Computed example of a mutant assay.
Amino acid sequence: MTDTDETTMIRIHAVVTGMVQGVGFRYSAVEQARRLGVGGWVRNRLDGSVEVEAQGSAAALAQFISWLKVGPRWSQVEHVAVTGIPVEPERGAFGVRADR
């Protein structure tokens, strides 16, 4: 890891599939993101997946994406699709958004 990884801000959109609703995934994602200093949001989708937008340092997001691939204890993550998206100037604390 270089200094650039620790200071470069990036933003990602992710869709997590598997048994990821009703198992504390959103709550655990909020805890993990806040612990890592990542901003953004998480929400359930009508198709049973969980959607995430997250922004932070490259190093923090790498750790967060690794966590998304495992999830909390009771989840069973099948796949995580991650796409880079433009960084937003203001990033608030990570939180839960209304389901979609």
Rank of each mutant, 00 (worst) to 15 (best):
M1G: 15
M1R: 12
D5M: 13
D5I: 03
T7G: 03
M9R: 15
R11H: 07
R11M: 05
R11S: 15
H13E: 09
A14G: 11
V15E: 14
V16S: 09
V16C: 10
V16I: 14
T17P: 08
V20A: 08
Q21G: 09
Y27F: 11
Y27K: 10
A29F: 01
E31Q: 12
Q32C: 12
A33K: 03
G37E: 06
G40E: 08
W41E: 08
W41S: 05
V42P: 00
R43S: 00
R45Q: 11
D47H: 01
D47L: 04
G48F: 09
G48R: 10
V50P: 04
E51N: 02
E53P: 12
A54L: 04
Q55L: 03
G56Y: 05
I65V: 15
I65A: 07
I65T: 14
L68P: 12
L68V: 09
G71V: 09
G71F: 14
P72G: 09
W74C: 01
W74M: 13
S75G: 04
S75N: 05
Q76V: 11
E78T: 07
V80G: 13
V82Y: 10
G84H: 12
I85D: 12
I85Q: 09
E90N: 06
G92P: 11
A93Y: 02
F94N: 04
F94K: 06
A98V: 14
D99H: 04
D99C: 00
R100P: 13
